[in-house]
């Protein structure tokens, strides 16, 4: 269809997913990790929409994509509130400093 197939979109989605995953693993800043989660969700969302366009999934894919966007916004709000609370307690948003339960 128009010369761009399903695979191309899936590969872009996979790369975004991988980058988001890398953010989760590599970053120490809590807000940077949140950004990684956003990338991760976007990669997944692109898959939903690509399948909605190219297969018989149709509108259902778009509805699920909408739910993902809304839930991601909610997740960002709560996670940011947690990060702010964390900053209030530790004066840092380095996630490595959260080890009180371990010690």
């Amino acid at each position: 269809m128009d010369g761009v197939g399903l695979e191309a979109y899936l590969i872009v989605g996979a790369i975004l997913f991988g980058c988001g995953f890398a953010c989760l693993l590599v970053k120490r800043n809590a807000i940077a990790i949140l950004m990684g989660v956003e990338l991760l969700l976007n990669g997944a969302n692109l898959n939903f929409l690509a399948f909605a366009r190219f297969t018989s999934l149709g509108l259902d894919g778009q509805v699920i994509g909408l739910f993902v966007i809304v839930l991601a916004a909610a997740e960002a709000a709560v996670a940011l509130a947690i990060a702010l609370n964390f900053y209030n307690n530790h004066l840092s948003i380095d996630v490595d400093s959260a080890k009180e339960l371990k010690d």
């Binding site: 807000i31 909605a52 366009r53 994509g65 966007i69 809304v70 916004a73 990060a83 702010l84």
Partner: peptide, 29 residues
């Protein structure tokens, strides 16, 4: 992918809302 509404939601909610809040969080912390 012919998902106009999703594209607009993406811009409004993610780029215009979530990222602004994230940067706001960076400024606060």
């Amino acid at each position: 992918l012919h998902a106009d509404f999703l594209a607009a939601s993406q811009l409004l909610i993610y780029a215009g809302g979530t990222v602004v809040i994230l940067i706001f969080g960076v400024m606060l912390t």
